[in-house]
Amino acid sequence: MNNDELTYKDSDGSLVVIMQAVHKLLRSYRQLESDSTEAAGVLIGERRGRHIVICDMSEPGKGDIRNRFGVNRKGLHHQAKVDLVFERSDGAQQYLGEWHTHPENLPSPSSIDENSWRLNLANHKPMILLIVGREGLWIAKQNGNVISPLTMME
């Protein structure tokens, strides 16, 4: 992983772009040490037709419950960040999905992750799911109850 913006595509050719500043911030939460705890937040950005651009994110903070192999995003600051960015952008930027870390090089979702997303992210629009590993990212789009991993564009 480098610090440039990242572009992913799904099977229908829709794109998901992670802006450079967000990518850099996500990397800062990698669980590189043996005592690093999982981190989590929400993804914020724009829907541009069928494409999605992730421009911002919330970070871990007060109220979140974090341990080595789990995280519970409980802090009220996550919703406050979404509300602030929505207001400042005159509604152009909005909540797009969830991110969290895993203490593995190339992350993949656990059954707990998948069940939580299906239960809590029921939405009529596609949502983005992202897991930050020590060396790479796992990213997918959720449409209803269907979770489809995305492919990085070279």
Rank of each mutant, 00 (worst) to 15 (best):
V53A: 07
N123A: 14
W138V: 02
R118S: 09
D90Y: 15
D90G: 10
L32M: 14
F69K: 09
W117H: 08
L32W: 06
R50H: 11
Y29S: 05
P107I: 01
M57G: 02
L119D: 08
G41R: 04
R88F: 01
F86C: 14
N67V: 02
G97W: 00
I128K: 00
D35Y: 13
N123F: 07
E104V: 14
L26D: 04
K125M: 15
R50M: 00
Q94A: 04
L43E: 06
V22P: 00
L43M: 05
C55R: 04
Q79Y: 10
S34D: 13
S108R: 04
E59G: 01
K24W: 04
V42M: 08
M127G: 01
P126F: 03
E98H: 13
K74R: 12
N120W: 12
A122I: 03
M57R: 03
D90T: 13
N105V: 08
A92K: 13
I139M: 10
R27D: 07
I128W: 00
L76M: 12
F69Y: 08
Y29D: 02
T101F: 09
P107K: 04
F86I: 05
A39M: 15
S36F: 13
I52P: 00
V71S: 10
R66S: 12
R48K: 15
H51Y: 09
V53T: 12
S89I: 02
G45V: 02
L106P: 00
N72F: 06
I65Y: 07
I44A: 03
N123G: 06
I131W: 05
N67E: 15
I54A: 05
F86A: 12
E33F: 14
T101P: 01
H51I: 03
D35K: 09
E135R: 11
G136A: 11
V42A: 03
I52A: 00
H51T: 05
E104F: 01
D113N: 10
G70F: 13
D90F: 13
M127I: 04
T37W: 14
G63S: 12
L119Q: 14
R47V: 09
R68M: 10
K125P: 05
G133Q: 06
N67F: 12
L84V: 11
